[in-house]
């Protein structure tokens, strides 16, 4: 009889007396299946990176090289496309505008979402379930539905073409999302902590700021990551609510296509620059992100 231990990821620690397979053999088999998994993962990652690599590749070429011949890497490395963007204020202001409204949105959202999420995680109140469902429906609302009314609403209150208009508009889906994630994180903090703090004489605001918020630090970090992500990638609303002063970079990029053709090099360079903030943000939250993706509910 052969007692084979399949699925022994770290099997050597749990050798049973029945096992006829030597630890060395088992390690060998583990190594082989691990190697196969790594190959598959590597293949996926390469396929995933390829389109991005192509974008970077093109951003480092001149337009004549892009259109002239098929080159798998830049033959005459040039940074002119990037220099062009960084020296033209109408280009780099697009990035400033996008960053500004994303930051404003993150600040507004987290300020109102923290108390609301606390209320949902700790109390029941009249209409709480309906309210929560209504919030979720806003998360599902297609921006296209709100396009025209938004334009008219913000125009009539004089906020059209300001950063705050886009920040407020993005609250539509970011506040529900933030509450959803934060509620999950807050619910995993035992209620006894709140009660102990009140017995110790903490008032609610002091308890909330001094004790509770530090306890869900990682949850807040992950929430901010998601808020950044969804506000940074959205274009439809941002484009509709702005004209010249607060125009997002995504809109300015359409300027590369003119009557004389498309300025591929600049388009690619601008695209690469929109990816960089995302990489920075994900680097900062990399250790908490796995829990955050389950919206705090694992």
């Amino acid at each position: 009889m052969s007692y084979q231990l399949e699925n022994t990821q770290r099997g050597e620690k749990y050798t049973t007396i029945f096992s006829k397979v030597t630890p060395a053999q088992r390690r060998n088999r583990n190594a082989r299946s691990r190697w196969r998994a790594n190959c598959l993962l590597g293949l996926y990652l390469i396929l995933m990176i390829l389109p991005i690599y192509w974008l970077i590749n093109m951003s480092l070429q001149t337009n004549s090289e892009i259109l002239g011949s098929m080159t798998l890497w830049p033959q005459n490395l040039t940074f002119d496309n990037y220099i062009g963007i960084f020296t033209n204020s109408s280009w780099y202001m697009g990035y400033v505008n996008s960053m500004l409204y994303v930051a404003m949105n993150m600040l507004i959202t987290i300020c109102v979402a923290l108390p609301a999420a606390y209320a949902f995680s700790r109390f029941t109140f009249i209409g709480d379930k309906h309210l929560f469902f209504w919030l979720l429906t806003n998360l599902m609302a297609p921006p296209a539905v709100f396009l025209l009314p938004y334009f008219q609403l913000y125009y009539s209150v004089g906020l059209f073409d300001t950063h705050i208009a886009v920040a407020l508009a993005h609250c539509l889906f970011n506040i529900p999302l933030a509450i959803w994630i934060l509620e999950g994180f807050m619910s995993s903090v035992p209620k006894e902590i709140d009660e102990t703090a009140y017995i110790d004489g903490y008032s609610f605001p002091r308890f909330f700021v001094k004790i509770f918020i530090p306890m869900i630090r990682s949850g807040i970090g992950v929430t901010l990551f998601f808020l950044f992500m969804f506000s940074w990638v959205e274009l439809l609303l941002a484009r509709t609510l702005t004209a010249t002063n607060a125009q997002p970079i995504g809109m300015i990029m359409t300027r590369t296509s003119t009557a004389s053709g498309i300025d591929w090099g600049t388009l690619a360079a601008a695209g690469v620059l929109t990816i960089i903030p995302g990489i920075l943000v994900v680097y900062f939250v990399r250790n908490h992100i796995a829990k955050g993706f389950a919206l705090g509910r694992t």
């Binding site: 993962l41 990652l45 995933m48 990176i49 991005i52 992500m229 940074w232 990638v233 959205e234 274009l235 970079i249 995504g250 990029m253 695209g271 929109t274 990816i275 903030p277 995302g278 990489i279 943000v281 994900v282 680097y283 990399r286 992100i289 796995a290």
Partner: peptide, 15 residues
């Protein structure tokens, strides 16, 4: 791997 895999999610949709 985490950072690499998350990358496409953080690219603006029009890009």
């Amino acid at each position: 791997v985490l950072i690499l895999i998350t990358l496409p999610l953080l690219i603006p949709w029009n890009v």
